[in-house]
Structures are given as structure tokens and as C-alpha cells.
Write a protein that binds this DNA or RNA. Structure first.
Lengths: 117, 117
DNA sequence: AAATTACTTAAGCAAATGCTTGACTATCGC
DNA sequence: GCGATAGTCAAGCATTTGCTTAAGTAATTT
């Protein structure tokens, strides 16, 4: 569990950008072409294409070209990976906070040293 | 829902780095000092301090100095924000996939055009 | 008081990111 | 075939990131 997880790196990195997050949000409503994805933004089409490449590289979306239009759609897999990581963490720190709560309940007069760890 | 969410930007960005993610993982087992956090890494202490600053700036951890040692601990709030975003997305695309499934069940002989959107 | 510990701060640097513009290449509708 | 459409590719560039080293400062230990 202390190993590098390149796919997580890429997914978090991809989602760190508000434009890319907005694109994923849009794609959660259904597939869209590159130009449709680009429409809400002021940046160049080229920039949007680069964002799409990042999302696809992170496995967050899948794209396919038919004729001259490339259609994009969300790929649940990578999103699940991110969700999994978060859920694991939450489990751990909730368990920890519970233990701490129990300890405090048991020792209402906690000394100021050695309060944990 | 199409607004910028700087806190999400910062949280995702912070979690995109494997070292920082490892630090959060470590902190889920309980608070730690800067040097304790630094121990598993080969990078300089200075670099670790910078990572800690990023995590704190993203609201993912809280730190406090007492004497000459700074103690770090997870701050559930920001993690919840990330979790929330993911969960919303999952809800949306699961609902979408369900609808698509129903549609396919209703129209087993789907024409190749206009399959969605 | 002197040495050690636990950071802190600043400067510098190579690589990665997020754009831009400009020139192209297919495909579609007429 | 010809022009408009939809996207691709390649530079180039300013900023940000992820480090490093070097020189501090403040709290402990001895």
C-alpha cells in the first residue's frame, strides 16, 4: 500500500484542472464531440484537444473517431480508482477518530503529554 | 455547478503527487512530526516541508508547532470535498448507464445512428 | 554555555503544464 | 471538385512544480 500508483497520479492530476473537471461533468450527461466539449470555453480548440488527451491518458474518458468527428465519453474505471483511494482513507481516519473518541470518553482528564502516537 | 472550485483544484492537485499521497496515508494512521513524515523518503527534509505546505494549503492536513517540533494530522474536510465531487459524478453516470441499459432492452434492434445525445 | 536537534527560508534550476498561433489533413455537403 | 467543417500536429513561450543546496533560527540536551 506504499507503492507508486501511476494511474492514481494521472487521474488526480487530470482532475486538478477546473476545465478538465468541467469536461468530465459535461460527459457525465452523455457523450459529446470535441467541439461540443469545447463550446463552453474561451480557449482555443487546440487547448481543448490537449485537455482531452490528458483525460484520455488518465483513463478517465474514452474517445473514438468516426468520419471527421471524435466522440468522447466517460470511462468509469479510473474514477472508481480515485473513489477507492478516498474511501480507504476515510475508513482509516474515521476508525482512528472513533478510537480517539473512545479514549477521551474513558479518560476525561487527559494529561497534556502522550495524547497519541 | 459549472463554477470554479479552487479548493477542489488544490485538493486534487495535492493528491496527484505520490509522495504527498503517501504522507496522507501515513497521517491516516495518526499524527506525525515533519521528520517522521520525511523518514520514508530519500528527498531532502526541505522538499518534504514543501510538500507539507502544499497539503496544508489544500486544507488536507493541519499542522501546529510546539517547541521545535511541528505535528501534522489529517483534516477530513477537504478529503470530503473530493469524495463529494466523485460521488456526484458516479451518481450521474450510473443513472445514465441505467437509462441506456433500459433503452437497449426496450429496443434490441438498435439502428446504428442516433444511439444517444 | 556549547552542541545537537528540528525545522525554516531563500535562491536557483531543470522539467512539466497550459496555453497560443499557424500550417495541415481528412471528411462532408453541395 | 470545392469550400466549409472537424480535428490534428508542431513550435514556441510564460508559469508552475518539484526538487536541490546553503545558510539561517529557535528549542533541547548535555
Amino acid at each position: 500500500m506504499l507503492q507508486h500508483q501511476p494511474s492514481l497520479d494521472l487521474a488526480f492530476q487530470a482532475l486538478a484542472d477546473p476545465a478538465r473537471r468541467a469536461m468530465v461533468e459535461r460527459l457525465c450527461d452523455g457523450p459529446a464531440s470535441v467541439s461540443e466539449l469545447a463550446a463552453p470555453f474561451e480557449m482555443s480548440l487546440s487547448a481543448v484537444v490537449q485537455h482531452i488527451a490528458v483525460l484520455e491518458g488518465a483513463g478517465l474518458i474514452r474517445t473514438a473517431k468516426q468520419g471527421r468527428v471524435r466522440t468522447c465519453q466517460v470511462e468509469p474505471q479510473a474514477l472508481r480508482g480515485v473513489e477507492g483511494w478516498i474511501n480507504e482513507r476515510r475508513l482509516l481516519w474515521e476508525r482512528r477518530l472513533d478510537r480517539l473518541g473512545d479514549y477521551l470518553k474513558a479518560n476525561p482528564d487527559m494529561p497534556k503529554k502522550d495524547h497519541d502516537q
